[in-house]
Amino acid sequence: ASTLVLAEHENGSIKAQTVSAVVAAKSLSEDNSVSLLLAGSGQSLKDAAKHAASCHPSVSQVLVADSDKFEYPIAEPWAKLVQMIQQSGEYSHIVSASSSFGKNILPRAAALLDVSPITDVIEISSSSQFVRPIYAGNALCTVRYTGANPCMLTIRSTSFPIPPSSADSKCNEAPISEVDLSTLDEDYLGKSRYVGHTSQDAERPDLGSARVVVTGGRGLKSAENFKMVEKLAEKLGAAGIYFNNKVLLNFHRSYNSLLLLVTSVCVGENNFSKSSSLHKLEFDLKI
């Protein structure tokens, strides 16, 4: 078996979620060889490729697509790139983290390759059998992939934690090779253009990579009380705050609860709705 992992990088290093995708790829089968695919341009791509080569002992190859087309992670050229690489590499699996990058690109690439992708995998039972949440996490569905290669997956990075020993191990450096992009030119690739990006609340980690997520519900009753959740988040260190309302709660329960169950703290309605604990907490936080 051989797996292609679609890598996300930022400021010259591979994102942790991508390393989780490598961990997931490794669990597909014992003798799996894992190739990381990076795209971008300039020095930050070169730095990220170096980081990719030693980010996890299971990485056996790093493929680099260096072009202005990949300055930003746009779906159209990326999906085309994946299709092109699959046609020469014939991987058995293609994996990406279930981030906004992976969710945007992988299904498009799957359509080009005429296969059904499996998104949001939380458990790998075998190389063709996977568990994923449905109905906002209120049920778990086990699916078997019976189609042709490649089997394409996005994985929830919180379900495939990176073992501490594999981080920054220098034991092996995978070879880095450049992808030949001469056949990538298609006129439709210029039809979507990157305009800009604004980040929200940069001092807190985003939901996808937060180690701890603190979240409050209607039990908090008022905006004033909600400040306690913020304070608690500060006290816990690198914590993300997730503001719930009923609709969001319904739609994102799976995403949320996964984080809550595996890695996070739920300051839920019941803890706070008792007025005594509420006041006590206020006192401790010196609001």
């Binding site: 779906a75 159209e76 969710k103 945007n104 299904p107 498009r108 799957a110 359509a111 080009l112 998104t119």
Partner: peptide
């Protein structure tokens, strides 16, 4: 099913931007 796939696949099959 929470798939989050169909739009991307329609765009891919049509070769349209998404």
């Amino acid at each position: 099913d929470d798939c989050n796939q169909t739009g991307q696949m329609v765009a891919g099959l049509l070769r349209w931007p998404q």
